[in-house]
Design a binder for these strands. Structure first.
Length: 550
RNA sequence: GCGCCAGUAGCUCAGUAGGAUAGAGCAACGGAUUUCUAAUCCGUAGGUCAGGGGUUCGAAUCCCUUCUGGCGUGCCA
């Protein structure tokens, strides 16, 4: 917000002074307070072009800029930086905006209503959601909220792999447990089958609803019934887990449906039309090497079944057909090879690869009491998303997941996330919000209210800390835009922590309410109301609650 | 072998499209509460940004290279 203003003023100034310049210069918030509120390298980058020394050029710009009323000081420093301090009233104006815009502060039209598809979680419907899905859920959902807030039209989609080999194995696993319930002795449980306890529970529920009936069906029908029962049951429980986590989807895309609608055949015919398929060894191949893949890939196996690549290509064709500006796939780190094939296929079909963005979320290592928790899906030993929500709660879990940049491995300490203490950054932010609420409550009791407040009195906010807080508050819009652009919601979580820190420091140094100085008190109440607003907006964009009391 | 991701304080991580003296939190140590919530604040200590080269006014950031870790490289999904 303020940066934009300075940017505009600087450009105007350059033209007035007849300097040539490029737009690549930057305006930054310096690490060191003495370097001003903002700092620009515009002279450093453009001095050569104008055959001047950077410092001389900077001096001219500074001398011109200071003539404007909104600037408190403009200095030249170091090799030719221009360090800027804005007048207090600029900050006060900004503060008023934050209050007036209420919960819409920070929102913008930046995205120009461009349609965005976010596909995430997309876990196999063969068991409960695990902790990796939880990370994807927290990440994807926050990105969704942020993108919509800055003016994109984002959609969340969950792709269900409810067809193919693995769901057949699921059905077989259920059958074994079902037969067990009917009294069959199972000597050896196949290693490729799903071993988790939930399979037994599923079989038990199946038995409750169907009794022995299924036993008399032909094997094919029996397995089909079991498959459908299991898929529906697991889908429901995944949906519930996600809802507990505060995540919903606009669309659940079913692979089975894609198959039924003949879209797989369609995809194959498109590839054939593009001259990218051939037959060899009884199989149908995709000549993906033409498009940068290291070797060709099988599309139809020699047994006549499609590989998993085909439905995925078909699925992505539907994404393109639906007319999104950007499609973001959120995948685990084990999908690189898969994505290479997929991209090759999209290239073959002449789709714009620029529109297809892939984010690889890295793995999570769970720790408890300092020890790694080992998880094995085969053996059924997994920490589920529900376990996580039960143990540490939605807020803490979401915060921890969002707080890391997506490409980084994540070490997750169950005990730390549970701790309601200063070791836990979630509560640090929430506590700031609760503290402010508590102060506002006290103010209401003492009849110091903002209704009677004249914003002209904001000039009483002249402490360094107060101006620093306003400056930080006004950063929200650009933080959100950068988070949306880079697909990095962790920028927001970092920002809230900084803001909460500024508030806690301010709180301990200055008294907000003082009955002897009503106008000052009101000004400060005005300020902390704005802080509360920004914290609440930020937390809500992360799907985290902002409690009034703790 | 090849490809992708990572390597920053004892630990977990930031570092904003190369910017000035590399920052937080935790852990360690020392302080602050007759007070609007101490789930807080103040202070001390802690670094060869994995190593080496290059690009330039300027590099944790870009390029090259070596090392280390994770993952991938199926007619499994």
């Amino acid at each position: 917000m303020l940066k934009a203003k300075i940017l505009k003023d600087l450009k105007k100034c350059m033209s007035k002074l007849d300097f040539k310049f490029e737009d690549s210069f930057s305006i930054e918030v310096p690490n060191i307070a003495e370097h001003g509120d903002f700092s620009s390298n515009i002279a450093l980058l453009n001095a050569k072009k104008n055959k001047m020394k950077p410092r001389d050029m900077a001096k001219k710009i500074a001398d011109y800029l200071i003539l404007k009323r909104d600037y408190k000081s403009v200095d030249v420093a170091g090799p030719g930086f221009i360090n800027i301090k804005l007048a207090n009233k600029v900050y006060h104006k900004g503060l008023i905006q934050i209050i007036t815009k209420k919960h819409k502060f920070g929102s913008s039209k930046y995205g120009k209503k461009r349609k965005i598809l976010l596909e995430f979680v997309s876990a196999n419907p063969t068991g409960p959601l695990n902790i990796v899905s939880a990370r994807a859920a927290a990440y994807g959902d926050s990105l969704y909220r942020i993108m919509n807030f800055v003016g994109f039209q984002a959609f969340r989609e969950f792709y269900i792999n409810d067809a193919g080999n693995q769901v057949d194995i699921l059905a077989e696993s259920i059958e074994i447990r079902y037969r067990e319930i009917l009294g069959d002795k199972i000597e050896e449980f196949p290693t490729e089958a799903y071993h988790g306890e939930y399979i037994k529970e599923l079989a038990a529920r199946l038995y409750t609803s169907e009794g022995k009936n299924l036993f008399y069906l032909a094997e094919k029908d029996r397995l089909e019934r079991m498959k459908n029962f299991a898929l529906e049951d697991i889908h429901q429980s995944q949906l519930e887990s996600l809802e507990r986590f505060g995540v919903t989807f606009e669309n659940w895309m079913s692979e089975k449906k894609l198959r039924q609608e003949g879209i797989l055949e369609e995809a194959l015919s498109y590839l054939a039309e593009a001259n990218c398929t051939y037959e060899s060894d009884d199989a149908v191949w995709f000549s993906s090497t033409k498009f940068g893949d290291e070797k060709d890939r099988v599309l139809i196996k020699s047994d006549g079944h499609p590989t998993y690549l085909v439905p995925d290509i078909a699925y992505h064709i539907t994404k393109y057909q639906r007319g999104f500006s950007i499609m973001i796939d959120v995948f685990g780190p084990d999908h690189h090879a898969h994505v290479a094939k997929l991209r090759a296929a999209m290239m073959a079909l002449d789709y714009d690869l620029e529109k297809l963005k892939v984010v690889y979320l890295q793995h999570i290592t769970l720790y408890s009491h300092g020890d790694k928790i080992k998880m094995s899906k085969r053996a059924g030993k997994i920490i589920t998303m529900d376990d996580l929500i039960d143990e540490v709660g939605k807020d803490a879990a979401r915060f921890f997941f969002i707080n890391r940049k997506p490409t980084a491995h994540l070490d997750f300490d169950m005990e730390l996330a549970k701790k309601k203490s200063n070791e836990n950054p979630v509560y640090y932010c929430q506590y700031a919000h609760a503290r402010i609420c508590s102060i506002l409550k006290k103010a209401r009791k003492q009849k110091i209210i903002l209704k009677t407040f004249d914003v002209k009195n904001l000039k009483k906010l002249n402490k360094e800390e107060e101006l620093a807080i306003i400056k930080k508050l006004l950063e929200l819009p650009s933080i959100l835009i950068s988070a949306a652009d880079s697909f990095e919601p962790h920028r927001l979580s970092g920002y809230v922590q900084e803001l909460a820190g500024l508030f806690h420091k301010y709180y301990s140094k200055y008294k907000i309410i003082n009955e002897n100085t009503i106008e000052l008190s009101q000004s400060r109440l005005y300020l902390i109301t704005a802080i509360k607003n920004v914290i609440s907006i930020s937390l809500s964009l992360m799907g985290i609650s902002a409690p009034n009391r703790m």
